[in-house]
Amino acid sequence: MPSEMLIKIFSYLDTVSLLAVGRVNRHFYHLANDNGIWLKIYSSCFQPKKTLWKMKSEQTESVSLGCAALHDRKPGYWKKEYIFKQIAVVKARVMQLVKPVDPYTGLPCKNKEAMKASGLSWIIVLKDKIGKEHVMEEANLSFKDTSVTILWYSTDWPCLDILSTLKLFGVIPLLPDQSRARSKNGPRYRSLIAEYRLANLTEKSVEVGADKLVRLFCLNSGLVVGLWKVKNEIAFVMTSLHYHQLFERSTLGSATVKYALPPHKPLLDDVDPEYGLHDYSLHLDMHGRSCTYLCGTFKSLFCRKGRVGRTVRCDFKMIPAVMFSFYIQYFCFKGRNLN
């Protein structure tokens, strides 16, 4: 089929389908990058401030390839412009949503709305010993004041014995305008958050509880894996992600490298050299996936220099099995300006 006819057919496709067609082969890739097609898409979504081309009434469905907007532009130029513009629009919308900050936690108040606006979601990728990947989309989300709890469950998990690694990714659509549809087949960008080794899971991980049907194992960084007792296979996977720099961790990494958080250097108080931090507040949030069991803020706290930067460890074996789905989230901040 002639290239001109294929370009005409491609001009009737939406952006997601157009990107998918470009992955068929090299010839289709070059045709799907046609500036005439993408300029039409761009101009239909973003009204230009100045008209760079003249269009007669009978030419409303096509753009002349000899116009100034297409002249001396490399193939794919307007495709990139369209994608970058869409990302910029969504980013501006998200930034407006995350501006209001909770005075007690220091975290944005509208995290749920911001995540929905950006199309952000999370997936886990299970890789077996021969390199095949099994992608599990999120099944259930629970938003709290300081964190989001994600639960993956399915009846079609791959066999545990053949699995080698589990990777947790933040996922955003390449075309944010398609985020409302949440198409699993559309182009998406992955950002690696954490990676876990599943080989010899029951021997190398800590068993934190069990009931008549399921055994619970806790991996580092707060990932909980439930295994069926009878088959010793995966029943569900659950994790809780704190809102602190969650957008950065979920969007600014790559498919192979995690986003490197900037070093945290707490400010030392010079009132008394023996004290490390003064007038801090601790916000504690203990919850399940569906309800909150404990939520409170403790003010006027301090710690000595030797304890700055230390983490709090909990012995999960001391907690009843029913409590394993609960998470305690901490966020301390300077509290002198609080009323």
Rank of each mutant, 00 (worst) to 15 (best):
T60G: 00
T60S: 01
T60R: 02
T60P: 01
T60C: 02
T60V: 02
E61K: 02
S62G: 03
S62R: 09
V63P: 00
V63A: 01
V63Y: 00
S64T: 00
S64N: 05
S64I: 01
L65F: 04
L65P: 02
G66A: 04
G66H: 04
G66W: 03
C67Y: 04
C67N: 09
C67R: 05
A68D: 12
A68W: 10
A69Q: 09
A69N: 07
A69T: 08
H71D: 14
H71V: 08
H71T: 14
H71I: 08
H71E: 13
D72W: 09
D72F: 09
D72K: 12
R73K: 15
K74R: 11
P75Q: 01
P75K: 01
G76I: 08
G76D: 07
G76T: 07
Y77N: 03
Y77I: 02
Y77L: 01
W78F: 06
W78D: 00
K79R: 12
K79W: 00
K79I: 02
K80S: 05
K80V: 03
K80A: 06
K80Q: 11
K80E: 10
E81Y: 02
E81D: 07
Y82E: 05
Y82N: 05
Y82V: 02
Y82S: 05
I83Y: 04
I83Q: 07
F84N: 15
F84W: 09
F84D: 15
K85A: 09
K85D: 06
K85L: 08
K85N: 09
Q86L: 08
I87L: 07
I87C: 07
I87M: 05
A88C: 08
A88D: 14
V89Q: 13
V89M: 11
V89K: 12
V90G: 06
V90C: 12
V90E: 10
K91G: 04
A92H: 13
A92N: 14
R93Y: 11
R93Q: 15
R93P: 08
V94W: 06
V94M: 07
M95P: 01
M95V: 12
M95D: 13
M95T: 12
M95A: 14
Q96R: 15
Q96I: 14
L97I: 13
L97S: 13
L97Q: 13
V98P: 05
V98I: 15
V98D: 08
K99G: 07
K99E: 15
K99V: 14
P100G: 13
V101G: 09
V101Y: 07
V101N: 10
V101K: 15
D102N: 15
D102Y: 06
P103I: 15
P103V: 15
T105D: 04
T105Q: 04
T105K: 04
T105A: 06
G106N: 03
G106M: 03
L107P: 01
L107M: 10
P108Q: 05
P108V: 00
P108W: 04
